[in-house]
Design a protein around this nucleic acid. Structure first.
Lengths: 359, 359
DNA sequence: AAGGCAGATGTTTACGTAAACATCGCGGCG
DNA sequence: CGCCGCGATGTTTACGTAAACATCTGCCTT
């Protein structure tokens, strides 16, 4: 029953065709294009997908018809037919940390390169409820795979209702035994930081760590501690911040009071920034009196006062590996596990120097 | 023809059902749930969508069956049927600027709140080809609306092939006559910056502007110029950076040479950071010798040396308005135009002070 | 010259969902 | 007592695409 054989006037209300409930206005379908081009819709499909076996002449006609009607394939129908969405979901906490953002960006770029779109699932507040909410939204979402930029204990806390058969890759975590994990080599970087300062002649190295409950912070602190012990040094007490520059400032005011503190390894560049301010305020010169080293190498690090020696994280590589891993897992359908570590690189600038001569 | 009346052994190859080409494993469909619950698939649909008119008993049976089979609705089929994806596409340049990231984050949160997902369309390099590429990817994408975080001249440069009937909202642009635009009140903020410095007693204000070709930079520079002229002051020559701290440093080395320069308005906080470093290096004290004001109020601004006076941008509000506008446009199907400006707020910290007494 | 084969195109069908319409049973009311 | 109406549920159909299969044309091979 074709609508064409009904006279238009028989439908006074008008617009009877395509009684969409949605908000999108009518668009041309393959059938429309086929009708205009005088071919079957299957031929339109072939042209649309660039298949061989279509005469150049026919192809031109179809393309012309497509253009005239402004045809664009309906991706919902496509996804339904093909059984895949060509979309990767990325679930992450607030994009307030440099690392998450850079990783996300790299993921988006890599995904685009592979022909995949990226759907962003933000979790406003890192509470269990919020995380669970994001995952339940995810359940209804049109994604073929998921990349989680989140510490795994929060992942665990939420009774995860991950859609079955959707592959997951996790960043920033140490759960390689349960998930596929991609992460920066936090331990290696931290050891390099400590070694750099010891090599300069410092007796020991203080650590301005990240917040309690953060695995990244934990691993950096552990590695710092281990590196000192291995070198036969006594680790000073751990000082904690919350990643923010402000917390680094507060911790710095405290550290400035310790005259025996000549070298500080801050767990990220923002806290190092606050630390620099506190030391400056208290008249402790960097690097003459105190050496400071950061972690991340944010773009601004080279413009701190003084320019910050820090450990460069290759977030682009992390993001790329996430996409690569998750797509491979999709293809082999695989419960692959294990952790891929991306090395850091020490960037020496002007905030580290040998300790002041003993007086 | 139901598959149920064919004996399983008649298909030796196995797996004949669901010969998916895609990568997703088989999931239960409504029909499967219906069969198990002993109802029709339409009843399953009603339960799935929370419609009334289903006995509580039936509902429970269906829910049990759903749970047993791990049913989750197929969003592709849903989108196809409903004619909408409940997804907003966000197209943006590299997420290296604070503003873009914060705006994106706010968009994602607002969209989630409205039940919409956000698909990210990154444009690696701001060349015409890249932008065009992103838009052509967009064409095939399952989105109901698009938010563009990009300067409009790049939008124009790309021969935009926006899907018809997909609503667009643009951020960071002055094309209110052609698009729906949401932006920070760049001009108002810049005037406030200049006024703040003049009120402190400075004779004039220098401007460390953003790169040539950026509308945001242009508008900030124009407003700076206009505010000075209105106040009867002579605008010094414009100095340009490229938004990076490094460029601010380079420009700062130059500015430090001008002894008559007592106040600088930097077009963003990163450049202000570089400027602070340059001034410090050249022995020009901030704020005693030179006052510096930034723009953006990035989280670290309060930890600069000295803490930076700057103009706070409310990116969260910008993002929220983007979503609100684009959804409204979708609903009214509307070619609405015009610009919505979000005001800035002056945050006075310690980098500005009255000029040094004339000697 | 006949058979066949390959390439071009058309036809059928299914993907999973949900609107529209059909049916069924039961209680209330005239 | 019978009919109407309504609530609960089932059946049909369409959304747009693309795989699988069917058909048709014409040229090449023997």
């Amino acid at each position: 029953m074709d609508t064409a054989d009904r006279t238009p006037t028989s439908v006074p209300g008008g617009g009877r065709r395509r009684p969409r409930t949605g908000t999108r206005a009518q668009t041309a379908s393959m059938a429309d294009v086929a009708r205009l081009a005088g071919v079957s819709s299957q031929t339109v499909s072939r042209v649309s997908n660039g298949y061989a076996g279509v005469t150049d002449e026919t192809r031109q006609q179809v393309l012309a018809a497509m253009k005239e009607l402004g045809y664009r394939p309906n991706s919902a129908a496509r996804a339904l037919k093909r059984g895949e969405f060509r979309t990767i979901g990325v679930i992450t906490f607030s994009l307030s940390t440099t690392g998450n953002v850079r990783t996300l960006e790299a993921i988006a770029n890599s995904a685009a390169h592979e022909g995949y779109a990226v759907t962003l699932l933000p979790v406003a507040v890192p509470t269990q409820d919020e995380v669970r909410g994001a995952f339940s939204r995810l359940e209804e979402l049109a994604v073929d795979a998921v990349i989680v930029i989140m510490e795994v204990h929060l992942l665990d806390a939420a009774t995860i209702a991950l859609p079955p058969h959707v592959q997951v890759v996790v960043v920033d975590s140490d759960a390689g035994d349960r998930y596929t994990v991609v992460d920066t080599d936090q331990a290696g970087g931290s050891r390099a930081a400590v070694r750099h300062l010891l090599d300069l002649g410092h007796t020991t190295v203080w650590h301005l760590g990240g917040p309690d409950g953060s695995f990244a912070a934990q691993r950096r602190a552990d590695a710092w501690h281990a590196a000192l012990v291995e070198a036969g040094r006594t680790p000073p007490p751990l000082v904690r911040g919350d990643w923010s520059a402000e917390s680094g400032y507060r911790a710095g005011l405290d550290l400035a009071g310790h005259q025996d503190c000549t070298a500080v390894f801050a767990a990220n560049d923002q806290m190092a920034l606050g630390l620099l301010r506190a030391l400056n305020e208290r008249g402790r010169r960097v690097p003459e009196d105190v050496s400071v080293i950061g972690f991340d190498d944010i773009p601004e690090a080279g413009s701190f006062l003084p320019p910050l020696t820090t450990l460069h994280q290759d977030f682009a590589e992390v993001g790329r590996l996430c996409v690569e891993n998750v797509l491979r897992k999709m293809r082999i359908g695989g419960g692959e596990r294990g952790t891929t570590l991306v090395p850091t690189r020490l960037v020496v600038r002007e905030s580290t120097a040998p300790p002041p001569a003993r007086t």
